[in-house]
Design a protein around this nucleic acid. Structure first.
Lengths: 114, 114
DNA sequence: CAGTATCCGTGTTGATACTG
DNA sequence: CAGTATCAACACGGATACTG
């Protein structure tokens, strides 16, 4: 392996491919919000307090396209939509947890204002 | 904790802080290149074949500033400079390895051209 | 409630050329 | 050998307003 192409882009390391799925500012917060079970769109907005609609929708669509989450629509009034982790999405947590631990380590050895 | 300030920026999750240290296109490849011991500038350029001088220097300086690596200058002609992982840099590998495993998992379940 | 639609700033990366 | 310097492109994210 090592060097492959996906969706017209070249990747040099598996990590680059991992980052396509959980990288960016919002994907990990969204996955973490869904960790304890499905959430509605509005609940996600509350949980991730500082996200805008545009960013939330964009990232949800990307996560869905990459099969990290799935979207369930309940045809009722008012509408209800929930988002749930797939098995692939759950696979990300080992990496997410390791990143969290490393982040905490760096916070502890750094001058940080809380 | 949860929500803190560093260098005039606000962070909402430890992972954001982790990504400041190992995020971007080049920091992880550099750290991996140094995993088996110090490397000279030129060796790094060979190991990470597709990196430009500008990117290599920029990322090396940032990693140095964040105490992930250190720079040793040998005053001789022609000049020799080596880069070595610090203890903090080595701490990143748990997360890097977890990311690699997740990346490989996603590659395996995805249509990828090798 | 759960989104769309636009417009725009700005940071990150890249290409290329040059140097103590 | 180990870098600097400049200029440019482009993706990412943010602000704001609107809607089935």
């Amino acid at each position: 392996m090592e060097n492959f192409i996906y969706d017209k882009r070249i990747y040099y390391h598996p990590i680059e491919f991992a980052m396509v799925h959980i990288g960016g500012t919002w994907k990990i917060p969204i996955l973490l919000a869904l960790r304890n079970g499905p959430q509605r769109y509005g609940e996600l907005k509350t949980t991730i307090s500082h996200i805008t609609d545009k960013m939330l929708v964009t990232q949800l669509r990307e996560l869905e396209k990459k099969k990290m989450i799935y979207r369930s629509v309940y045809r009722q009034k008012p509408p209800k939509v929930t988002y749930t982790l797939t098995v692939h999405g759950k696979q990300a947590f080992a990496a997410i947890d390791a990143l969290t631990m490393f982040g905490n380590y760096m916070i502890n050895i750094t001058e940080v204002i809380s």
